[in-house]
Write a protein that binds this DNA or RNA. Sequence first.
RNA 1: AGUCCUUUAGCUCAGUUGGUUAGAGCACCACACUGAUAAUGUGGGGGUCGGCAGUUCAAGUCUGCCAAGGACUACCA
Length: 1124
Amino acid sequence: MSKKFAEYQKFNLSDINKQVCQDWENGNLFKKSIDTREGYPSFIFYEGPPSANGMPGIHHVMARTIKDTFCRFKTMQGFQVKRKAGWDTHGLPVELGVEKKLGITKEDIGKKISVDQYNAECRSEVMKYTREWTLLTKKMGYWVDLDNPYITYDNKYIESLWWLLKELYNKGLLYKGYTIQPYSPAAGTGLSTHELNQPGCYRDVKDTTVTAQFKIKGDKFGDNAYFLAWTTTPWTLPSNTALCVGPKIDYVVIKSANPYTGAEATYIMAKALVSNYFGPKKAEPFEIVGECKGTDLVGIEYEQLIPWVNPGEGAFRVIPGDYVTTEDGTGIVHIAPTFGADDAFVAKKAGVPGLSFPTKKGELRPMVDMTGKFFLLSDIDDEFVKNNINTELYKEFEGRFVKNAYDPNLTDKDETLDISICMMLKQQGKAFKIEKHVHNYPHCWRTDKPVLYYPLDSWFIKTTACRDRMIELNKTINWKPESTGTGRFGKWLENLQDWNLSRSRYWGTPLPIWRTDDGSEEICIGSMEELMAEIEKSVAAGVMSENPYKHFKVGDFSKENYAPENIDLHRPYIDSIILVSKDGKPMKRETDLIDVWFDSGSMPYAQLHYPFENKELIDTRSYYPADFISEGVDQTRGWFFTLHAIATMVFDSVAFKNVISNGLVLDKNGNKMSKRLGNAVDPFGAIEKYGSDPLRWYMMTNSAPWDNLKFDEEGVEEISRKFFGTLYNTYSFFALYANVDGFTYAEPDVPTEERQEIDRWILSLLNTLTREVQDALESYEPTRAGRAIQDFVTENLSNWYVRLNRKRFWAGKMDKDKLSAYQTLYTCLETVSLLMAPIAPFYADRIFRDLNAATGRHNVESVHLATFPKYNEAMVNKRLEEQMELAQKLTSLTLALRKKADIKVRQPLSHVMIPTTVQNIKENLESVADLIKAEVNVKEIKTVEGSDGILVKRIKPDFKKLGPKCGKAMKSVAATLQALPQEEIRKFEENGVYTLCIDGNNIEVSTADVEIFSEDIPGWLVANDGNLTIALDITVTEELRQEGLARELVNRIQNMRKQSGLNITDKINITVCADAEYCRAIEAFAEYIKQQVLGLSITTADTLEGAQEWDVDGKKISVKIEKA
RNA sequence: AGUCCUUUAGCUCAGUUGGUUAGAGCACCACACUGAUAAUGUGGGGGUCGGCAGUUCAAGUCUGCCAAGGACUACCA
């Protein structure tokens, strides 16, 4: 019994999705796709770890489709592609999720709940949606090893991180620094830039600003001269220690007076901003008396504006800063190094001290304490108060909160510290201008209160030291799109800052650095072995009473040994470990955790527990660096950067060779999706509704991965219908007839040269397609690949090949020609299933399996274990492709003419005329003439030479060729050529050259520089497409009329056959009752009719019982068919 | 504020090294086809190629400026 091709009653991609998914599970196919490639070259892919504490969204389908597509493609190309899944488990979102769930705040940790319990909550919270993620992964067909994922909270993972940190430490790239960071006094914690970039954090606020007068020392500008400097944070003025000018900016010296007091004075400010402060509309007259550059001002000293605290040597002078602009303010910037990152930077460079208080606890703080208020004198070191603080002045302000929002007793309506200070300055005649100003200011997303820029201690990685190497290595990375690599990423590297690693939290990788209290000695731990040894030392020295990790066995890499029940490297356990210094002093761990981005950037090594296990995989570069990674473009400075930075600094290598940074998934109106707006698309719903394939296909083909995708469900539906529906129809058509004929591709291939031209044509296109798809995928352009496949299937295979060849499949016996048709169509379907498999893995597998089940041509069970098609150049015939294109164009033109003349395609016509002098077209035409004739139902195609004079010719200049030759005269040349009379054109054609006279210059034009074609044939119905012209003879002769009628009858009989439910192979007898003309037509074409409808006999009768009536062009006919 | 991306038909997108009628699909309207039929074909309307300026014989394409939308980074008086 011969095998059959599966035939389906309905087409539901969602169901197919589920079935194929099940087939994969049953066959353990993902594993097989890796195991069967054992020993083959590797294609190395790294999975960027998502966080499972949020539900997966539709954009994850996008990102993962890209990853999956290339991994499948490379697998099919014969590479072994291991894909280890990963989970990002540390960090703020997790902590916040837990705090929300438990209804606690950060302050409650260690009070209402122990750190221990808190971390346990985090550990479970972080994997909250693992089930959903796993489900989505399977449903969308993302093949990744979920059974052995790397998890960033894993002890082994942390140990690898420690090793990396120690490498950096040993290279001197890890240091502790004191920098200005965003800090939320209300929450009592520093904030990462990531937190500051939460939506809604930056808000417009209205603050009181002041332009203050800083009195210049000495009499260089007279004895009453001031610098004018503007600030939006007047509360920082008591901490002022310098003024900053732009070296290249022009400054002017102005004689005027203080608007509040009227006191005459000399002012210095940027020339470009004078009109903001002085002018005819202002109260005080002014006069510019001098001008200089910023450089000239540098070094000038001034008197302290608010003399509360003595900051020490080197303060109160003008320093240079490149960042100073003349966009607003005065072009002179007030510098409080303790409250601004830029301030601190320029001040440090110029050797200007910041203004700090030593506290009674022995810390060094700015004027503002950690709760956001001016220090109470009682909290400051007594000695310092005595020597450096003017307590008379200061005590009036001590304890004032710098923002009302920080003070539990104040509201927006109360006078702010800013206003108090402004009033004080005004009274003292030091305020030049006080006004409200609206500006954008960051707020803490947890407390909703403004953020303070505040100096904090942090650990940094000195990435700046490796900047050049990073830039160099980046040039070897293939970025898709290129602009992200050179632009966003490249620029980022050029302006690289040191990487602030510290996070003052609980749930994260602890910084493995232990220090003595005085900071004189410290140790960086790089492994468990080291830690255990140090603990033993500490126990021996009596610093610790016992080793809390005593059950851990060094060198035992079993799961049990590293299980959290055995050891836990997280806080608070790790904090209980006190090590001992060489001098016998206790060393405590620096309480910081590290930035979670370090976690993910370390995954190439930590996922392998490098270097403790799998050392050779990295060292021999057999699993490193990645050939390919892909994530959202928002990861450019996130994961992409941390991967690159760690690889450069520790391994002097790139971490990845090819990278796609994909765009966002927006809603169909181009808005960002968000749960709040309710425009987020649920990936599970979408997959259920459409199936994963259309979704994946839509995402890959609608726009390039790196462009944002405007997700529109209608687009997915369109893909379903247009591409998958057409492909399904094509397959169904094939299966239907192949089963009737018992075709199972058992016969040897019909030699190419013995196949019809149209077969060779589609096979030629198929190979061209194969090459294009391969090229596209190899250059990481899935969009181009998908679009090419889609175009081939819908346009060429279905709409042209199948449509034109339908009769070959249903008529006649299985001869060589029919076999050729089957083999050709089979090859196309099979190849398409292979080509599309990386993008649409489900339906591709369905078709492949259905085809292969009947033919057994591949000895693999799934398309994903098969080999990607190879381009066969011998099959490509550009000539044939041109010919067919010509046929398609001519057919379209002819059909358009029929339409214009209102003559149905069923009515045969005698001939079309195609004027052409181009030999090439003539030859091409000959080979496709039969096709065209059949398609447009015309008996004959005639070509006409131009010389007989019936054609009206036209010249079209070839601008590309003539342009460089003619230059400025181009326009006139074109106009002259186009206006050339018929006789001149004829002469031109005869001579091959023609001389034009333009503006007195002779220009010689040859026939190669122009296209000459006929545009019109007087008296004929004519159509043009480019330089192609056809004319249709619309005369319907008696014979043609008869044939037309016969065809109409065939059409009606076929309809009746179908209606009456006859089998397609049943034979019939026909009786017709019609007028005389129709009867003559039937008589004349009786054989034709019988053959078309499988009729044994056809007779005409005067009257007819039980017949069906039809109207053909106004004629009434009755037709009756009976099964023979 | 800086960097980058996007802007072509009502919608989604093509548009090669600049070359003269700016394309496709969807949607819409009309017609045809009816042994692939919950398919299919043909025709039609629809465009100041975001705006302005420049380079050029020639600009959707190159340059500059501007605008809108988006992303990232930063936050500065």
